[in-house]
Write a protein that binds this DNA or RNA. Structure first.
Lengths: 95, 95
DNA sequence: GCAATATTTAGGAAATTGCTTAATTATATA
DNA sequence: TATATAATTAAGCAATTTCCTAAATATTGC
């Protein structure tokens, strides 16, 4: 797991907002973009950073590209952060 | 709590290494610097970023300035991250 | 006060980031 | 095929970051 890529990806407020949006469910690049006041190109760059950190996945659906959280990696991120901060993991695996 | 400052502070590998060092106990700027291959001035800048994020505290002891983790804020950071990642907090407050 | 030590601040070069517009790729439809 | 739509990539620019050296500040001990 690319720790540096993950920290870097999360250091930007736009990218955190993208991740937040995706927590509610998968969205196309265009649907995501509707919520941000910047060009699609700028968003696309942010998507690339998130993808490089393996935080999101993409899937083409016809003309659209659907973004979704890579929840497996998000769990790893949580574990990594808790380890970094020396927090004990919760005992219950109540997913 | 300045979320953006915290994320930004943690995005740099040198600063994460500083935090790691401080988890073992407080150290002076000079002691910390001994572990890094860069000038004291560069380190001092990193200290400033960590201080701005309220992640470390300083205390002058004679000629030295002692750096220590601000553990209260570190706990807040952990909570913030777990909330961000939608992880349930551990039930036990076993400190 | 003066010199030595510890740390920060100032000023600047090089790399990175975040954004833009324009061009390109991929798909759908007529 | 031609055209429209969705999204990415390319090229370029301003702001920021990271590092350096040199100068300034703070403290200790003579």
């Amino acid at each position: 797991m690319k720790q540096q890529a993950v920290f870097k990806a999360m250091a930007d407020p736009t990218r955190r907002a993208i991740l937040k949006r995706l927590q509610a469910g998968a969205l196309t690049a265009g649907e995501l973009g509707a919520h941000f006041d910047m060009t699609g190109a700028a968003l696309s760059h942010h998507f690339a950073v998130l993808k490089q950190a393996d935080l999101v996945r993409t899937e083409r659906r016809g003309q659209f590209i659907v973004y979704s959280l890579n929840s497996t990696v998000m769990e790893d991120v949580a574990r990594m952060l808790m380890d970094f901060l020396q927090i004990k993991p919760s005992t219950g695996g109540d997913s």
